[in-house]
Design a protein around this nucleic acid. Structure first.
Lengths: 347, 347
DNA sequence: TGCTGGCACTCTCAACTCGTGACTGCTAAA
DNA sequence: TTTAGCAGTCACGAGTTGAGAGTGCCAGCA
């Protein structure tokens, strides 16, 4: 749709993005000629910038201000102009050390990773926990809790435990639960979670010769526990960094963003279409699909376990973010996380 | 230390608090005489207010402004002057219904309760999860995860599961883990968590005739899983409500509070000394013991399971909060939660 | 002795003006 | 095609001002 940019226009666009990201001030033609070696005068730059604005790459906040990149401007920058960054070896080592010191429990690792990413990027970090679809069934245990309730725990290959309470008003003995656990374990051991259907679960439960009510209750709970249709957990860290950004001095904007951050579902929706993917992804402004955060962008990097992409790391910040840097930091963090997960539990 | 207040001073103080909570504007002598029936002129009120200020109950933000309660003023109001509120029956019913519809899983209940309290109070709500000390041991399960790692899961009476990963580089069979699980279950079944020491755990593990390394790894993990020295989880909700308060338009204040809200430990410290208590508690400004949130107060209400207080609900907001109302809402929520917990799992 | 009306004084806050500086677009010449 | 120059536009900060709210104090009164 948009015309291809000639070399000079591309350089100007890239420089405007760079400068605006650094200063948070609209960029004028004079600033460009003074700070960067363009070889032409500011008048020429003015003409070029006017054309870039006409083509939709730049926007003027008001008549006598400099220019600011539009969504399309950022998009072009990210896709074509940005020079990819990599972490320095010292940074990589630091990341690696962070993970070596980290706990072994998956919950704690997720928490730790998110916190770390928030600190390193000085933005809001969030993380979609490993999706159960792609994990392997390891164990199920039915536990007698009280005279009326029991607990089902399902453990998957990453050591992720899901628990569901169920009623057994009709009464069931602890050893009946044990033997049912054994059957289920025998049936599902080593299977991929996504290959276990709730129908399979219901069949095995019904074969155990229990009362119809109990079968229904158990099948329901176990179906939920085994099923993979629940959204994975999303946790976040670093909301306070938003306050440092000049674009969020306006409290109304801040409020709608905070609301999104507090809502797991809303955060998940932001990155839902990146979840299965194996490539990093960047979403800019309106591309996020929510009117409340058109001033934001999100950088998404998947992480994997074995050869499956199981979840994503993400950084949420103002559109005016250092994309290349954040991509590098998130990728580096994901790499360390990948290694940590692999070390913890080689299949 | 402070002189006892005569009746009129007490009424003036109470009215200043009431008015300031409602309007967020410093309260002047004229406002008081016009809005409330005091039977004396504004000049008299001025004299009284000057004395209240000298005694430390009121503060003047600047010379030509009205008065605002000090920490001591709020404290006196809360302890002696405030008229306790109760929820209306319709509100109680609504709360009850909310909990009836709630999930059975403890995690979900905690999450749900916190969210609800945040919405109802339009402030930041947080909740300290049930402390494991006072729960009963129900089940332990050791699970073979991979060739090098295993998982220990401990379930307590409320259906709370704790998991710990452990190494078994030397190798162990799944059925050895099962038989060890059985021994541990036999030893601890029905005991109070606080009566189970890590030494007990270590002894039983060492009797199983495993390699020394394995015994150490298992004892460590199980000790952690059974031990109760880890802080209970703290989760929060409703941070965005802070933005509605005029006192937090200042971003610096907001930032330090947001930082505290994101830190479980910091939140826990705010209410640590209320955790075992069976009485609601209110902390005002400096009483919170943190320089970062001297502008805030916290209302704390315990909740119980059986006859033990297991955790607390709390509301964090500006000092200028409707104490009686928030206390009523938090207490009502706690009451519904108590009933829900009791219903879910009668011992 | 306590209360009150009156008054002078203080201080904040919002509105307003105004000059400055940073841009732009346009034009005419190189 | 580029450039220098110039007029025009606009936001922003500083300074000013008036209104309004509130106080403390004092003298008089019940």
């Amino acid at each position: 749709m948009r015309p291809e940019l000639d070399k000079r226009k591309a350089f100007i666009l890239a420089t405007v993005v760079y400068e605006y990201v650094a200063t948070a001030e609209p960029v004028g033609s004079n600033t460009l000629t003074q700070k960067y070696n363009l070889g032409v005068s500011s008048a020429t730059i003015r003409n070029e910038m006017a054309e870039l604005e006409a083509a939709g790459y730049l926007v003027q906040p008001h008549t006598s201000a400099g220019r600011v990149p539009s969504d399309a401007g950022y998009r072009t920058y990210v896709d074509q102009l940005m020079r990819p960054e990599t972490l320095q070896t010292s940074e990589q080592r630091r990341l690696h050390d962070e993970f070596r010191a980290a706990s072994r429990e998956l919950d704690a690792v997720i928490e730790h990773t998110t916190r770390l990413l928030g600190q390193l990027t000085r933005n809001v970090a969030f993380m979609v926990a490993p999706h159960r679809d792609v994990q392997t069934f390891r164990h199920i245990q039915l536990i007698w809790l009280s005279e009326r309730t029991g607990l089902a725990i399902v453990v998957t290959s990453l050591g992720l435990a899901v628990q569901k309470t169920f009623d057994h008003a009709a009464g069931i003995e602890a050893d009946e639960l044990t033997s049912l656990s054994n059957r289920l374990n025998a049936a599902f051991g080593g299977k991929q979670m996504r290959d276990i259907s709730t129908a399979d679960v219901a069949r095995i439960v019904s074969e155990a010769g229990l009362s119809a009510e109990l079968v229904a209750a158990l099948a329901g709970a176990l179906g939920d526990a085994v099923g993979t249709d629940e959204l994975p957990a999303v946790i976040s860290s670093g909301a306070q960094h938003l306050l440092d950004q000049p674009e969020f001095q306006d409290l109304r904007k801040l409020r709608s963003i905070l609301r999104i951050i507090e809502e797991q579902k809303a955060l998940y929706d932001l990155v839902a279409d990146s979840v299965g993917s194996s490539e990093p992804n960047i979403k800019i402004g309106h591309e996020l699909g929510s009117d409340d955060i058109t001033e934001c962008s999100v950088v998404t990097v998947p992480y994997h376990f074995g050869d499956e992409m199981v979840g994503v790391l993400a950084v949420l910040g103002p559109r005016r973010m250092p994309y290349a840097r954040l991509l590098a930091v998130a990728s580096g963090t994901a790499a360390s996380l990948n290694r940590h997960l692999a070390d913890t539990d080689p299949r």
